[in-house]
Amino acid sequence: MSIFLAMIQEAIHYGMVFLFGSTGETLIEKSGHLNLGVPGIMCLGAVGGGLGAHWAHQAGAGAAGIMVVSLLMTILLAGAGGLLYGLFTITMRCNQNVTGLTLTTFGAGVLGFWGTQMSNKGITFTEPSRIAFTSPLFFSGEVPDNWFCQLFLSYGFLVYFAILIAIIAAVVLKHTRVGLSLRAVGENPAAADAAGINVIKYKYISCVVGAAIAGIGGTFFLMDASRGTPEYIIDAMGWLAVALVIFSLWRPAIGIAGSIVFGFLYRLPYNISALTVVTLADKELIKMIPYAVTALVLIVISFFNKRETQPPASLGVPYFREDR
């Protein structure tokens, strides 16, 4: 297999971490909430996913069992994080940036603490990861060595699940009544309220569902992309997922392509040594590219100032019906 094929394969693989995160964050931002807690929520998701997979594996469950328990635990913990964020910013109308940053501090702390506990007890996740997550969905053994199968059919279940969720999110946002209402809530909650949309309900549902989706990104990173070897850099991945939301102009469908680009750039510093000689310092410059490109996208969309590419108008503004 050529090195380029392997690089693209890895790009798709790692990109899905960003795709889960950015799809979730997009849903939340569409309801007018800038959730800077998504990195923390992804950490919480990873804790849930790791615990669930470990328990199910201990109990002797098969591939499907491990996957289901792991995802349920992910959704439970990440959803709880989303609910907490919702409680603070929707009902209690606290500052979104402050709540989000706190949630990120908390989530990253919980992940690190849990990770230390696990490694103290000598628990690893490589075995459940191999059984349930990284094994290819479409083949029972080795993936046939032709480029099509390698490129498109060699991944575990969650890669396809990520793309499926992004497509569903794109369709729901763009083509359904629910999506229209959600976008209205994010643009102008007072008008949406006057039109009979239950603003609070929409905000809560999008916060919790978005958090659950983002949380799967954390589990995916721990159990699939890094093959069950605990690496506690999920919050760093989470910030890139937040960046991807902007990069994809708040559209999950663009996010699919964007996530693969981000995955490629994220892995480039590690892969590039196979192609050419680079110093450690140069690798740091390559790592800058996703952030720099996102900053550039932000500036460009504000320069053109087209209505279709702007952040939701009431992003970051708490809604209280009795305020004028």
Binding site: T105, G107, G109, G112, F113, T116
Partner: peptide
């Protein structure tokens, strides 16, 4: 090392 950030959170 991250226990303090849990508590700070």
């Amino acid at each position: 090392a991250t226990y303090p950030s849990v508590m700070a959170g």
